[in-house]
Amino acid sequence: MLHFIDKNIIVTTLDKIVNWGRSNSLWPLTFGLACCAIEMMAAGASHLDFDRFGVLFRASPRQADLIIVAGTVTYKMAPILKRIYEQMGEPKYVIAMGSCACTGGVFNTYSTVQGVDQFLPVDVYVPGCPPRPEALMYGVLKLKEKIIKEQKRWGSWR
């Protein structure tokens, strides 16, 4: 009984620390597909500095915690996107940036995937065509809120 209580006390306290750490160093993958990638670059560049949120763009999926799907996903690109998502280490999060990644947008055609949530678990949707860099920042802040509320998503309890 005592052993059980100990475990729980440690878990709840550690949850806070782990979530604090995770939410303040979200490293997204530079995964630019289309128009939204330009706004993603603008968000990371000098005028609207993304680094101040602890968001540093990484080029390798092995080093990334977050994938921002910025742009239209076609049927030719979808398997590659899925593989890159699988290459990322846990915990991993997905932001669907722009109308195309959320729902397919204006491109309701034979070659376009109608929303990236058909094959990836999307955490935050950022609408817009393309969304402003500020909108992307708001999306990342929303993801931070989500991470802070997470429980037991580490170690053997995952």
Partner: peptide, 26 residues
Amino acid sequence: IGYLHRGIEKLSETKTYPVAMTLTDR
């Protein structure tokens, strides 16, 4: 190539002239 083929040329055939302009943005 073809990883970003969205079918803009075909899609513009289904839109009127003023509306097809929004596709040229992309």
